[in-house]
Design a protein around this nucleic acid. Structure first.
Lengths: 204, 204
DNA sequence: ATTGTATATGACACAGTGTCATTTGTCAAT
DNA sequence: ATTGACAAATGACACTGTGTCATATACAAT
């Protein structure tokens, strides 16, 4: 977490730093991002950086928390739009994020993040204890709306389903943006979702 | 790829380098691994390293190719043992890798790799053009053995199924080794596999 | 012995990190 | 208005690591 010193800064200065950080984190994966570039771009002294943040990771997590805040708002809109149907939500999410990813302007940071999530980071999405109360609530609502539809017995199982859906969707988004003809890529994604819906075993 | 200079080295010297690399890559994620440590441990001059390898990435990929070679042999044994049943194979694989991961000795490199695969690396597993002919053949055999069992129409769809299975298994292995009580973790894994087998939608 | 080619070497230039002693700014109390 | 005390800013510095290159060495062929 940034220090109080940082939060006490003028909005203008804070924004300048946030903007510089966004730019740098969009340029290269986290490990290659350089504090040097950020402080130069934001026009603060190197020492100041360490007054505000513990290190690069600290700043990165702060930037992420801002992004996640934005996304949460968006997510609620999508959930409403699709009446809470979890599968439709993920398909919409896929289309939405591909759309965002295609637009050069805002997409680079987004792509850096998506492509460079590690397995071990990724695990914490749902399990994480510090999950916001609001997100927790959203999850419960979703469970209520989907439990009749799905083959699940409790909220724990619902979380498993979401994790699988998320894993598939994330993979597919990265693959689409990276390698494939978008039409074909979407077909593959939908096929994978179908497998999950109907099962891969032949019914006898 | 390492240079000819490297391959011309005495077995002894090569092994010393490989051993040092293994040690360093087991210690920290790739980005943090230091060439300095490797050359010191292997007792070669810094300049020599750059005679043998382009950079850290180059060495890492070489080390990985050795590991994958080992794994391929293992995989064939497992496939035979489970009569080619793809689902049983992945369950066996899970158990096998957890077993390996539990043993301190060899496990650190393995864990580093598994935890730190990025989404974008991960994508290339099956799509990769340079997939070994032998692996290609294995895949075809597996398709023949599973096509009656599964709800699929062609080899492309079979690949999708494998990718999903792989994504789930990998996630679960990392989660198990990292966070959870192993018994409970295995239950979660099996549940996720069941979802994929039978489908998450309630049949009406 | 001489030459040519492959290999080895470590000092060097460069780039980046995190720290710390010092300076500068702010503001409440007098 | 001055002082003192605390908060914030600064950049030089010590450190760690990378990749390169001119030079040294080994050794095979003639």
């Amino acid at each position: 977490m940034p220090t109080n010193t940082f939060f006490n800064l003028s909005e203008e200065k804070k924004n300048k730093i946030i903007k510089a950080a966004n730019k740098e984190f969009a340029r290269v994966p986290l490990e290659q991002a350089s504090i040097k570039n950020i402080v130069e771009d934001a026009e603060i002294a190197r020492g100041s950086f360490y007054q505000y943040f513990e290190d690069k990771q600290d700043l990165f997590e702060y930037i992420m928390s801002l992004k996640i805040g934005d996304m949460e708002k968006n997510l609620n809109k999508i959930i409403e739009q699709e009446n809470g149907n979890i599968i439709k939500i993920f398909i919409y999410l896929y289309d939405h994020l591909i759309e965002v990813g295609k637009i050069r302007k805002n997409s680079k940071l987004f792509r850096q993040i998506f492509e460079n999530i590690k397995t071990s980071d990724n695990l914490m999405l749902i399990r994480k204890k510090e999950m916001s109360k609001r997100l927790e609530k959203t999850l419960q609502d979703l469970y209520q709306k989907n439990k009749e539809l799905l083959n699940i017995n409790n909220e724990e199982e619902f979380k498993l389903v979401i994790e699988i859906l998320f894993a598939i969707t994330r993979r597919r988004i990265v693959a689409s943006l990276k390698y494939k003809d978008l039409g074909e890529a979407r077909e593959d994604f939908l096929k994978e979702i179908k497998f999950l819906e109907k099962g891969i075993l032949k019914q006898n």
